[in-house]
């Protein structure tokens, strides 16, 4: 993170721009040029250790550069055209990720690198935090009072500290108290997911936001199946023969002939047996209604 180590200077609109800034802008432009794809990712909440780990584990697949927002903006503006659409995604603390993978793979990798993290006291929780009822690792002691003070329904049962009921201790948008944050950590509850959070990925004039980058295999398969069903049904409906529908069409015609013969009690040789059985079935059906009466012959009584 050498960038943050360099002498800081206010960004002013000045004709004189320090060389290091020019160099950095030039490097961003060069890398955007060099790689097929780049993404803007949020850095907030990530530790330098985790960032190093991500760099290590993705070496060869992607390059991560932390940069000042105004320099990124400058580089994108310089390049011009479609790339400037990415300026909207520069905010807070930003890193640029360069890759030759497609945007979906890149997104997938960055998501897979995310790890659970504890929430800090005094911060606003982005999510609901729920504590499940059940045992805790603690032995009875002052911890029970501390848990209760933090709003966690702790009690002693069978010589162990337990959570009595499942409870949502913080709702999304609420500030987490120091006491609660501390107790969550002691309970080894890490409610956050921290990593390089994709804001947008750019490829070849196209900007992909995270929701577009999630690949849902099950949903894709379902859509394929739906498409196939549509085609199959349409072909059946208009009796259009294809490799897939010819046999079902023949079977449908056969079924219709059979149904008509049965409904019309037409004694075609092929269905005479079925007609007899149907008559017999009718008999049994009526007989079953007469089960407790004297109306039945011996042969119909069970």
């Amino acid at each position: 993170m050498t960038e943050s180590d360099v002498a800081r200077g206010g960004v002013r609109h000045t004709t004189h721009i320090p060389q290091w800034k020019l160099d950095e802008v030039a490097e961003i432009k060069r890398l955007i040029e060099e790689y097929n794809v780049f993404g803007l990712v949020a850095l907030r909440g990530i530790s330098s250790g985790q960032l190093q780990k991500i760099r290590r584990e993705t070496r060869g697949k992607l390059v991560i550069k932390v940069a000042r927002n105004n320099l990124i903006r400058r580089a994108l503006t310089d390049i011009g055209g479609e790339v400037t659409k990415m300026i909207d995604y520069i905010e807070d603390q930003t890193a640029i990720v360069y890759s030759n993978l497609n945007p979906f793979k890149l997104y997938d990798i960055l998501e897979s690198m995310k790890v659970p993290a504890p929430i800090k006291g005094g911060t606003v929780s982005p999510i609901d935090i729920t504590i499940e009822k059940g045992p805790t690792p603690f032995n009875p002691g002052p911890i029970v009072g501390e848990l209760q003070k933090a709003g966690i329904p702790a009690a002693i049962e069978g010589g162990k500290v337990v959570i009595k009921t499942t409870k949502t201790v913080v709702h999304a948008g609420e500030t987490v108290s120091k006491e609660l944050a501390s107790m969550l950590t002691r309970l080894e509850i890490y409610p956050l997911t921290v990593g390089l959070d994709v804001r947008a990925i750019y490829e070849d004039g196209m900007v992909f936001e995270p929701e577009m980058l999630v690949i849902d295999v099950a949903a894709t398969v379902a859509k394929l199946a739906q498409g196939y069903h549509d085609a199959f049904n349409l072909a059946m409906h208009c009796a259009y023969p294809t490799d897939e529908t010819i046999i079902p069409l023949i079977q449908k015609a056969f079924k219709e002939g059979y149904t008509l013969a049965l409904e019309g009690a037409i004694p075609a040789p092929a269905i005479i047996g079925d007609l007899l059985q149907r008559a017999h079935r009718d008999l049994i059906q009526i007989a079953s209604l007469l089960a407790d009466t004297d109306a039945l012959d011996e042969d119909l009584k069970a």
Binding site: F254, K255, E256, Y258, T259, L260, L262, E263, G264, A265, I266, D274
Partner: peptide, 19 residues
């Protein structure tokens, strides 16, 4: 004669299981 009193479309709409 057998089909005289039958509404064919109606009859076909019945879900008959084939032997």
């Amino acid at each position: 004669s057998a089909l005289e009193g039958i509404d064919i479309d109606d009859a076909l709409s019945k879900a008959t299981v084939i032997p």
